[in-house]
Amino acid sequence: MNRNSRMVEMSVGFFVLLAIASLFFMALNVSNFKSQSMNSPYVVHAQFDQIGGLKVRSPVTMSGVTVGRVTDISLDSTTFRATVSMEIDGQYNAIPLDSSASILTSGLLGEQYIGLMPGGDMDVLQSGDYIELTQSALVLEDLIGQFLLSQGEK
């Protein structure tokens, strides 16, 4: 009986450990858990005329490296432009103040994300700063419309 119950306890322990290992595997390899934890992030804002398909939690990249995430999108009720707030990882704390932000698309029909282009200013972006230079998202319909218009004029 004693040996039997020890076997039961051991296999239950093994079962629970296996489940915990699975949880870690799912968290670290099959989800964005890793990239979710940023050390001491700071928030900067940018205003765009057109954000296209940008969503909360879209990545913010610099030279293709993800440095942060979009945390909030709202409409400025006076200028009627979209205000995008993004969290930038604290280890990238020397981004020049006059950097520009543009909304880019990964692939032809992929997800939209924000690309930051570094400027040359000596001052760096602080928490709460606004990125002044922005470039809106490309909207495919607008492009096609322009193309058709230019064809019609010929």
């Binding site: 799912m26 968290a27 390899n29 099959v30 989800s31 964005n32 858990f33 890793k34 990239s35 979710q36 939690r57 990545p59």
Partner: peptide, 14 residues
């Protein structure tokens, strides 16, 4: 694996 990591949300999905 890279695409999985980017698109599966820890909170929302798992």
């Amino acid at each position: 694996w890279g695409q999985i990591e980017r698109s599966v949300d820890w909170h929302e999905d798992i």
